[in-house]
């Protein structure tokens, strides 16, 4: 049900772009104005959200320790999972952000009772997530050629590596296939596994469908319904100089592609997609496990009512005296 809502929402968006361009001919709106607006919303919204998080302090020092603390010098501490230095935290965050360390932790390969090795199920989620995010990054890298003049060599290098299969199948990038497979998996697991279905909201499906839509249209304009790539770059570069030229003769597929991408950009700051920036601020991961060595300050700390020793002694004076314990006031 939740998946259907999201599917219709994305389908509706596609229809809007299709009729906007094919029926009404509002090419400039879809090629220029909406992307401009989406980019603005993305950047401003993202900064707004991060600043909003940043305005709330981290009152307590709460890293989740996943390894041995640094205590006695002869006990080997886990410098990354229970970081004792800034470098450790950087390494921990890098592993988390680049390799999805925590998802990978899921379960160990184990020898089961029937003496066969099982590869525990949830590594698949790690793999799916990792493939999706890395593919997305590389695809963004590839797209940067449309926004840069000249294009730096390492961007071309990344693209060449990604396109290594093109010797056999033209116009196909490894990441295109990978991201489609990963997104399909991420969607299917939400539908197939009852417990993931239970926790999935329409917004979870919406993000997946939106991404799928962008990718599918992207692959299509590169294979089946080719567009004049030079015209697209002229348009993109034109946007930097605030003098965009909408190329003639590009089919609606291209407009749907950039419209969905624009929606995705604009949706980003208001959704769970903020997990990207969010991970950097996660206090269970980005703090050093040194809270007994360095005092953490809570900026809104306030005095609280306590039961002082004097009050305590007053209340129990006779009892204390009775067993011969020392008193402050006899």
């Amino acid at each position: 049900m939740n998946a259907l809502y999201a599917f219709f929402a994305v389908a509706l968006l596609m229809l809007v772009a299709f009729f906007g361009v094919w029926g009404l001919g509002w090419n400039t709106l879809f090629a220029v104005m909406i992307p401009y607006a989406a980019l603005a919303i993305f950047i401003i919204g993202l900064i707004y959200r991060v600043v909003k998080w940043a305005r709330a302090p981290v009152p307590f020092h709460i890293p989740t320790t996943c390894g041995q603390q640094k205590s006695l010098p002869w006990i080997k501490s886990d410098r990354i999972e229970s970081p004792s230095s800034t470098m450790g935290v950087v390494a921990r965050m890098a592993m988390e952000i680049l390799l999805f360390r925590s998802l990978f932790r899921n379960d160990k390969v184990q020898l089961e009772d029937k003496k066969r090795v099982t590869f525990q199920g949830n590594r698949v989620l790690w793999l799916g997530g990792l493939v999706f995010h890395w593919s997305l990054l590389i695809i963004l890298f590839r797209h940067s050629r449309l926004f840069m003049q000249p294009v730096p060599d390492f961007m071309i290098f990344v693209r060449d590596i990604d396109g290594i299969l093109q010797g056999l199948i033209p116009a196909v990038f490894i990441t295109d296939i990978a991201i489609l497979m990963a997104l399909t998996y991420l969607f299917l697991r939400r539908v197939v596994f009852p417990q993931v279905r239970y926790i999935s909201l329409p917004s979870d499906y919406f993000a997946l469908f939106l991404l799928l839509g962008v990718v599918i249209l992207g692959v299509l304009v590169k294979t089946a319904w080719k567009v004049d790539i030079e015209g697209v770059k002229v348009l993109a570069m034109g946007m930097f100089t605030f003098n965009p030229v909408v190329p003639e003769g590009i089919g609606p597929a291209f407009y749907i592609h950039i419209f969905l991408a624009s929606v995705l950009l604009a949706y980003f700051p208001f959704s769970k997609l903020m997990h990207g920036p969010g991970i950097f601020l996660s206090p269970t991961r980005n703090l050093i496990n040194n809270s007994r060595a360095v005092r953490h300050i809570n900026p809104w700390d306030y005095p609280v009512k306590v039961h002082t020793y004097e009050e305590w002694e007053d209340e129990f004076r006779e009892a204390i005296r009775g067993v011969g314990l020392p008193l402050e006031k006899e």
Partner: peptide, 10 residues
């Protein structure tokens, strides 16, 4: 804000 409901914790 940031939970994506991936279900790894479930």
């Amino acid at each position: 804000d940031v939970c994506v409901r991936c279900g790894a914790c479930a």
